[in-house]
């Protein structure tokens, strides 16, 4: 399951339509991300970017209304999130979740075991602890934070460094980065972007980077930039396109009545506050 630079992996999205409570947010998405490629997805607020990230990863609460998503030929839409992850998909969410009492090292050890990577003795990869310590230095996360429960009491920037660290330790085939640059200062942005780009070069990581800003992309060096408006990819182009969008905005791509608000799923009921 560990990627090697030679094996090519491919995430293929065809005609993907999806939404929340039967409101269509993604209105037909076509994308192909291969090993070693960096794709950027840019678009105005509410265009469906986060929905795309979560539908690809398999977050409960979204309804797929049509189309297909495959990773190396496996039908992802038929699988729960954990099985998609085991096939090599990774999501760095925009808002990483706090998990009280569960250590980051513990999460990484379980995740490596789950993907069959931890039991590979003598591979030179080392244990979760060794890998995490090495990656902490590369992404600029204080080593002492590795012993903290996942995301607990971390700043926005530390969380994004932690996401990048997890990506680097787990070495997925394809990573979806949902606004990895939000919450980061200039130094943090540089550290995480360099680490992701190094993954592309080291083990052929394929990247789907959702962002508002060109700054992340100047380090990630996307091969393709897609513009997502109203749940559709309305334009795709080369790296220059990101700079152009930074200057001109999305006005030229928006037609009246086109914008569909992005949406989050409704939380499952069962939470009661008796006060």
């Amino acid at each position: 399951m560990t990627a090697t630079a030679n094996s090519a992996h491919q995430l293929v999205v065809e005609g993907l339509r999806a939404g929340v409570t039967s409101r269509e947010v993604l209105a037909g998405i076509d994308l192909e991300v291969r090993s070693g490629e960096v794709h950027a997805v840019m678009g105005p607020n509410g265009s469906g970017k986060s929905t795309l990230a979560h539908v690809l990863m398999g977050r409960p609460g979204y309804q797929v209304l049509g189309g297909s998503v495959t990773l190396d030929g496996h039908d992802l839409l038929a699988l729960p999130a954990w099985q998609r992850a085991r096939l090599g998909l990774f999501l760095a969410p925009q808002y990483p979740t706090e998990i009280p009492g569960v250590g980051l090292q513990e999460l990484l050890a379980e995740a490596l075991a789950a993907t069959g990577q931890a039991s590979v003795a003598g591979s030179g990869d080392g244990s979760a602890t060794d890998r995490a310590a090495a990656e902490a230095v590369r992404v600029g996360l204080e080593t002492k934070l590795l012993d903290r429960p996942v995301n607990m009491d971390l700043s926005g920037g530390e969380r994004k460094r932690s996401e990048t660290l997890q990506l680097a330790v787990l070495r997925p085939h394809i990573a979806i980065l949902d606004e990895l640059d939000s919450g980061l200062d200039v130094d943090g942005l540089r550290d995480v972007a360099h680490r992701v780009r190094a993954g592309v070069d080291e083990w052929g990581l394929g990247v789907l980077a959702i962002t508002h800003y060109q700054r992340l992309l100047s380090v990630l060096r996307p091969d393709v930039v897609h513009v997502l408006v109203g749940g559709r990819i309305v334009a795709s182009g080369g790296p220059d396109m990101a700079e152009e969008l930074e200057r001109t905005g999305y006005a030229q791509y928006i037609t009246p009545g086109d914008v569909v608000a992005d949406a989050r799923p409704v939380r499952r009921p069962g939470f009661t506050d008796p006060i």
């Binding site: 954990w82 998990i99 997890q166 009661t272």
Partner: peptide, 16 residues
């Protein structure tokens, strides 16, 4: 309440 859905999803998205 039940186990937090977001916490569960986060861990599961790591292959757990």
């Amino acid at each position: 309440g039940p186990i937090d859905e977001d916490q569960r999803y986060y861990l599961e998205s790591r292959g757990i």
